[in-house]
Design a protein around this nucleic acid. Structure first.
Length: 943
DNA sequence: TACATCACG
DNA sequence: GACGTACGTGATGTAC
């Protein structure tokens, strides 16, 4: 936002009123007039004005219920109830309040406030000004552009292109097309039945806009969707007219009438006194009838000083001299390829991206490679594009594949550059590309390419901005470059119509693929220097970057799973489920779908009238394990049997069947995909399959874990960090008693129990230890007395007593909890003990529930994140340590505080010693780190 | 697609 | 005085 431009602030008055009215309890003036909305409105507006100023400002209101849209579609907003009677007399007072602030009130018969906002925003922006619309109404998001932003009055968060994209999946200029398709039940906009937000966004991306889509509707592959679009084309067009704001609405007042004026303090003070708003008089500094700060300095130096906006990084402002994103070159002859390789090596840095026919890196075949060596200067080298799919017409000549350099020649030409230590390869999510390129891809290029050295823009972003936003390329591009890359779905289509990338025409493939390399290079140029200034360079260099190769090797290695054993377990579970189901139906008095929480809830609470039913937000009865457990404890048999059934059902579908489907037929092993940049705390996550949540807690679950086995001649070795998060608690909060217990390798929960219940050490009973354990864990989750009571099955009062005793014994812990909340509030992030920034979303929210969540996340983040970092450091060091000891163990899995290895039988003891040494020596805290090691033929035994 | 549920640390 | 109530993930089935 330029500082010397005129700046118009448009406040959505109706939104303010609505919120004020519903947020506040009824209030009346002495004469009986209801004024809660007036108070809320005045308070919010006054508050806003102390923080923001523009050269121009207006509050815009709806005039009446019916507008021109009702002539288009009589049912528009027909569901809206009339305003409540107590609100009606407050409208006039609110306009009076606005005027007393020296602010123009704008409204116009037959138009909605949104249309007036649209028209003023357009005119003002066309004259070169900046516009801020104070509203969070999604219907206004279509107005966002480089000159116009929304400001969410609750979250105090600017809404610009990236936020709109997040909400609608398209850029602001396409929002109306998406809304027209998806409809809007709150405004009674019909849309096209069966099409929701996601589908609408995908269609608009693919066909450009609504008309483009409707013109091509008869070619849509999905029959249901095609029929819906064809049958409802006119309804969609009407919907579009309903949601599109009229930027040419007549302006009831000229722009000059919106010039910011100093408030008429006398009039404002008189108004506030008349309403009896003494607290506002005080807050706005008007008690003596003067001293109200000017809301602005008209005509010059308008400033936009939202604290949040100032703290946020710049979004979507491309430098004016930025190179264009394309056109790019398609490389189909060897001479041209060699020229690109030479230039890349001369430049010393090159961004790189691979295109494949699968997201599964272990199966993916290379389809093409793109390179970028300067912004705007990028190329695409197709290597695996096939012929365009034929129409199936027998008379048609067999289609031919486009001309391409043979794969083996491409790899030979690229290999020296990709393996050149003097040329830095920049990738986005390098682990995937390295996994693909590391496999032999062609005859004559019979070994994989070991790409190095590597920078990864996804990890650079994650190292600085974990928890702040996602780290996908499209999102980062929009956020940092102000550019939306061509969406993948637009190139290949979606769903049934999707074609493999190898069948995409070369010009389209080039536009997409080369752009990705170009974007990666530009992101690197923008983000890499920030690593140093943000203090995240060491974290990136020494932890995240080194994890790329480590995790790639683990994924490629996989872990052996005994499919036959899984099948046997499945048989057993199935048989038991059938018996259970019969018994459950008998107890229910009729057959029903046991897997349906809805049907179960109705039987338990509507039919059998069991006590303790609670309805969820959708109005359905809650039937989760804690509810069923309560009922079972009262002696009811049905809920107990349902719990048993559910356990088997979960294990069977997720682990027996789901896991079996993931076994790679080529090696009998499962290969997970570790995500490096998903979690807000620095942990990894694991998908397809998730190998970080394999059962262990029940005997049935242990059977599943037994199916994870070592290959012949090997054993599995598991190494667990013992109590790592509690050690971090003792370290961070510097708790003498806990430090001593860890130093002496005592049982930490017994020590806590002895401390807070004043028991003799060594005479701690089981129940006291259980309570101490619950509170120890509860503490690092930011738990309340209510929560502790619920978990311990005691009242909140008794729980509070325990918490008080805990903090009395460990005052450092309470101080640390407070410090973390404070740190998050001031900075927006907390730091792990190793200096990683973890951004806490919602910490400044005025919504107490939301803020409460954020505060608990802030308390937990350093412990979870610190532990994640410790194990990552150990993992980064492990391969070298094993290599130097001439050991052949392979690291297979990481489960947050555990590492799993496959070890030759005759190397077990040596390997255990090295693993323990690396894990325990990776960080020096005020307490020792301890790793516990187990081994066996399967994971259940090793753990 | 949204929600409820439940597997793990 | 009410609010909502333990952190972080991913996969599955039902119901819309």
């Amino acid at each position: 936002m330029r500082q010397d431009q005129p700046h118009l602030i448009l406040v959505d008055g109706s939104g303010y009123i609505f919120r004020a009215f519903h947020a506040l309890p009824p209030m009346t003036r002495p004469d009986g007039t209801p004024v809660n909305a007036v108070f809320g409105f005045t308070s919010m507006l006054g508050n806003f004005l102390t923080k923001h100023a523009g050269s121009h400002i207006a509050v815009v209101f709806d005039h009446s219920r019916t507008t021109f849209r009702n002539q288009i579609y009589p049912d528009y907003k027909a569901h809206r109830p009339d305003p409540p009677p107590e609100l009606i007399p407050q409208f006039a007072l609110i306009r009076e309040a606005t005027a007393a602030f020296g602010i123009a009130c704008i409204e116009l018969e037959n138009y909605e406030a949104d249309d007036l906002i649209a028209a003023y925003a357009r005119v003002f922006a066309e004259e070169g000004g900046q516009v801020t619309i104070v509203s969070s109404d999604k219907d206004l998001m279509q107005l966002v552009n480089p000159s116009v932003q929304l400001l969410d009055p609750i979250k105090q968060k600017p809404i610009r292109e990236p936020e709109v994209f997040e909400k609608f999946g398209v850029t602001p200029d396409k929002v109306v097309d998406v809304q027209a398709l998806a409809g809007d039940s709150t405004d009674n906009v019909p849309g096209v039945p069966g099409i929701g937000l996601k589908t609408a966004a995908a269609l608009v991306l693919e066909y450009g806009d609504l008309e483009g889509l409707l013109a091509a509707a008869d070619q849509i592959k999905q029959p249901k969707r095609r029929e819906a679009l064809l049958a409802n084309a006119e309804l969609a067009r009407i919907s579009r007219r309903l949601v599109e704001l009229d930027t040419h609405t007549p302006l009831p007042r000229p722009i000059d009438a919106l010039l910011a004026q100093p408030p008429e303090t006398g009039r404002l003070a008189a108004f506030l006194r008349d309403q009896g708003f003494r607290s506002l008089l005080h807050r706005l500094g008007l008690e003596g009838g003067e001293g109200m700060p000017a809301v602005s300095q008209p005509r010059h130096a308008p400033q936009f000083i939202a604290a949040q906006a100032a703290a946020a990084e710049p979004v979507g402002t491309p430098p004016e001299d930025a190179a264009a994103f394309g056109p790019y070159e398609t490389v189909t002859d060897l001479d041209t390829l060699n020229r690109w390789v030479e230039e890349a090596q001369a430049a010393g840095t090159v961004a790189l991206d691979t295109e494949t026919d699968s997201l599964d890196a272990l199966r993916a075949r290379l389809v093409g490679i793109s390179l970028a060596i300067a912004p705007g200067k990028a190329c695409y080298i197709p290597v695996g594009h096939g012929p365009k799919p034929g129409t199936g017409d027998m008379l048609e000549a067999a289609p031919e594949a486009p001309v391409q350099i043979p794969l083996a020649q491409v790899l030979s030409a690229l290999r020296p550059m990709l393996e050149d230590p003097g040329t830095l390869k920049i990738l986005h999510n390098a682990k995937y590309d390295l996994e693909v390129l590391g496999r032999p891809q062609a005859e004559g290029a019979n070994s994989g390419i070991d790409v190095a050295p590597v920078d990864d823009t996804m990890l650079i972003s994650y190292s600085m901005d974990a928890g702040r936003h996602g780290h996908g390329m499209d999102e980062l591009s929009l956020r940092h470059l102000g550019h939306s890359p061509v969406p993948y779905d637009q190139v290949t289509g979606t769903g049934r119509a999707r074609i493999p990338f190898s069948q995409v025409e070369l010009d389209k493939a080039t536009a997409y693929a080369a752009e990705d390399a170009d974007v990666t290079l530009r992101l690197w140029q923008m983000l890499k220097p920030r690593l140093r200034t943000d203090g995240a360079l060491a974290l990136y260099e020494h932890v995240e970057r080194r994890m790329i190769g480590v995790l790639r090797d683990m994924e490629v290695e996989g872990i052996k799973v005994d499919g036959a054993e899984l099948a046997r377990i499945g048989e057993d579970f199935s048989a038991r489920m059938i018996t259970l189901e019969q018994r459950i139906h008998e107890l229910a008095g009729k057959p029903f779908n046991v897997g349906s929480p809805k049907q179960l809830g109705e039987i338990l609470f509507d039919e059998q009238k069991l006590p303790g039913g609670k309805r969820g937000k959708a109005g359905a009865w809650g039937t989760d394990a804690s509810v069923l457990e309560d009922l079972a404890a009262r002696g009811h048999e049905l809920p107990r049997e349902v719990m048993n059934w559910r356990q088997l059902s979960k294990l069977k579908s997720t682990y027996v069947e789901g896991l079996a489907a993931q076994i790679d037929a080529r090696d009998g092993r499962v290969h997970t995909d570790f995500s490096m940049a998903i979690t807000s705390t620095g942990r990894l996550s694991s998908t397809e399959p998730n190998l970080q949540n394999i059962p262990i807690r029940t005997e049935e679950g242990v059977r599943i874990r037994r199916a994870f086995v070592a290959k012949p001649g090997h054993v599995l070795l598991a190494a667990d960090y013992s109590q790592i998060e509690l050690r971090l608690l003792a370290h961070l909060a510097d708790v003498p008693s806990l430090r001593e217990a860890f130093a002496k390798d005592e049982d930490i929960h017994s020590r806590t129990a002895a401390d807070i219940f004043h028991l003799e050490p060594g005479k701690v009973d089981k129940e006291s230890r259980r309570r101490a354990k619950t509170i120890n864990f509860g503490i690092i989750y930011g738990m309340s007395a209510f929560g502790l009571g619920a978990r311990l099955g005691i009242g909140a009062g008794e729980a509070k007593g325990i918490i008080d005793a805990y903090f009395a014994q460990y005052p450092g812990i309470r101080a640390e909890m407070e410090r973390l909340k404070e740190e998050a509030r001031i900075n927006g992030f907390v730091l792990t003990p190793f200096g990683r920034k973890l951004w806490i979303d919602g910490i400044a929210s005025k919504d107490m529930a939301r803020r409460g969540n954020a505060e608990r996340a802030a308390i937990n983040a350093p412990f979870q994140g610190g532990a994640a970092e410790i194990i990552k450091r150990a993992m980064a060091r492990m391969p070298k340590a094993l290599r130097e000891a001439r050991l052949n163990a392979k690291m297979l899995l990481q489960v947050h505080d555990e590492l799993l290895f496959e070890v030759p039988e005759n190397e077990v003891d040596q390997t255990a010693a090295i693993v323990k040494q690396v894990m325990e020596g990776v960080a020096v805290l005020r307490v020792p780190l301890r790793a516990e090691i187990g081994q066996g033929p399967n994971w259940a035994v090793a753990h």
